[in-house]
């Protein structure tokens, strides 16, 4: 895991994706954030299908609940069907804490479901905690450098 560590943000809100990318890359210098806007591109990226044949395997994914072509549960179902991606940590972000959405995402295999933070501090805290708990196995980013 030395060197760079890829993170995939799947969100059609370009402004959010850009800000989130800046915030995440500040968490640890090894993070390299990639962004896609649709469910189709996300699956292509994760499966290294064109046009993402050279895409790296991300350490974790930030998946927006509502995407232009499909919702997060549909993406998760197809993602989990692939044995290589079955254990990939996925943080689903939604604009509201609708129980029905959370239940659908959890059932489809989301690692965590959260309301999308709208401040720098909470987003940094959320992603950092998620990374430590689900990817890094409890080791801090400093150990990765």
């Amino acid at each position: 895991m030395r060197g760079t560590m890829s993170v995939l943000i799947v969100d059609d809100n370009a402004a959010f994706a850009r800000s989130a990318r800046a915030i995440i890359e500040e968490i640890h210098p090894a993070f390299r954030v990639h962004t896609v806007e649709t469910a189709r591109d996300a699956l292509a990226f994760l499966n290294c299908h064109p046009p993402f044949t050279a895409a790296p395997r991300p350490a974790f994914v930030l998946l927006d609940y509502h995407l232009p072509d499909e919702d997060a549960p549909a993406v998760l179902e197809r993602l989990r069907a692939n044995p290589d991606l079955a254990n990939l940590p996925v943080l689903v972000l939604s604009q509201a804490d609708w129980e029905v959405d959370e239940a659908a995402a959890t059932l489809a295999g989301a690692t965590q479901f959260q309301v999308k933070p709208s401040r720098v501090g909470p987003l940094r805290e959320l992603v950092g905690t998620f990374w430590r708990e689900h990817v890094d196995g409890g080791n801090g980013p400093a150990d990765q450098g």
Partner: peptide
């Protein structure tokens, strides 16, 4: 309302 109205507000706020 929760998704479509909050989405741009969230992006404005974060940015």
């Amino acid at each position: 309302v929760s998704h479509d109205l909050k989405n741009p507000v969230n992006a404005v706020l974060l940015t």
